[in-house]
């Protein structure tokens, strides 16, 4: 049975991944790399770009093959496709910068099991046309990168007193070492979520107050 396809591409197709359905802050997907590699801005950026690349390539291929893949083995097929692109990324990063490769460690290969990519494949790429899928995946990838960067910059700033390796606070700053260690990852992400919750609540209560004022 052919799936009815809605091919209109709106700004929302792109923006939904950045804000409304941000994979990290809203949907809490792909948490492992988010917390593990964000102890510095440069690692966060590299991880974000690598994930975006894999996401774009795999959703392109899956979107093109969506009518050829039998439904029963789709998950296995998706995983193999994703694993192929991750292997490519792995070797490319190794060739470009060995230092970066060592810093990210096994987490490049672990992009395979990033639930966000499989989730996109299952929920979007297998149901939509190529162009729409591409736009949506790009949005998701950028949203993921932004989330990684916002965690990475806070952690590097507080834990190391620097941004992208340049010292910000000067010599006198006493770094919060805990921020670059594992607990810092959990706490910073928790704090970001708290901030977003607070903003959402404030917006809702402001809207309520406005309504009350009019009536």
């Amino acid at each position: 049975m052919p799936i009815i396809e809605d091919n209109t591409i709106t700004a929302d197709t792109f923006l939904t991944g950045i804000w409304k359905e941000n994979p990290v802050f809203v949907m809490l997907l792909g948490m492992c790399p988010v917390l593990a590699v964000t102890n510095s801005v440069i690692n966060a950026l590299a991880m974000g770009l690598a994930t975006t690349f894999v996401l774009l390539c795999s959703s392109t291929l899956i979107s093109l093959l969506r009518n050829a893949i039998p439904k029963e083995v789709r998950i296995a097929t998706y995983i193999v496709i994703i694993a192929t692109f991750v292997t490519i990324t792995d070797y490319v990063i190794q060739a470009i910068s060995l230092e970066l490769y060592n810093a990210l460690g096994a987490f490049i290969q672990l992009i395979v099991v990033n639930c966000m990519i499989l989730g996109r494949a299952e929920a979007y790429a297998s149901k939509n046309r190529l162009l729409k899928t591409l736009v949506n995946s790009l949005g998701m990838g950028i949203g993921f990168t932004i989330a990684l960067l916002s965690l990475g910059s806070v952690r590097e700033l507080l834990g190391n007193g620097s941004l992208l390796g340049y010292s910000v606070f000067g010599e006198a700053f006493q770094p919060w070492v805990v921020m670059v260690l594992p607990p810092g990852g959990f706490i910073v992400l928790g704090a970001w979520l708290l901030l977003f919750n607070w903003l959402k609540e404030r917006k809702a209560s402001l809207a309520l107050a406005k309504e009350g004022g009019v009536s």
Binding site: L28, V178, L181, P182, P183, G184, G185, F186, I187, L189, G190, L193, L194, N197, W198, E201
Partner: peptide
């Protein structure tokens, strides 16, 4: 408080737990 319900407080808890494991 309503603001900290759900994932936010779970992550904070995980942070403290991770601090202990250090």
């Amino acid at each position: 408080p309503n603001t900290s319900q759900g994932a936010a407080i779970s992550l904070m808890l995980a942070g403290i737990l991770s601090l202990i494991f250090m």
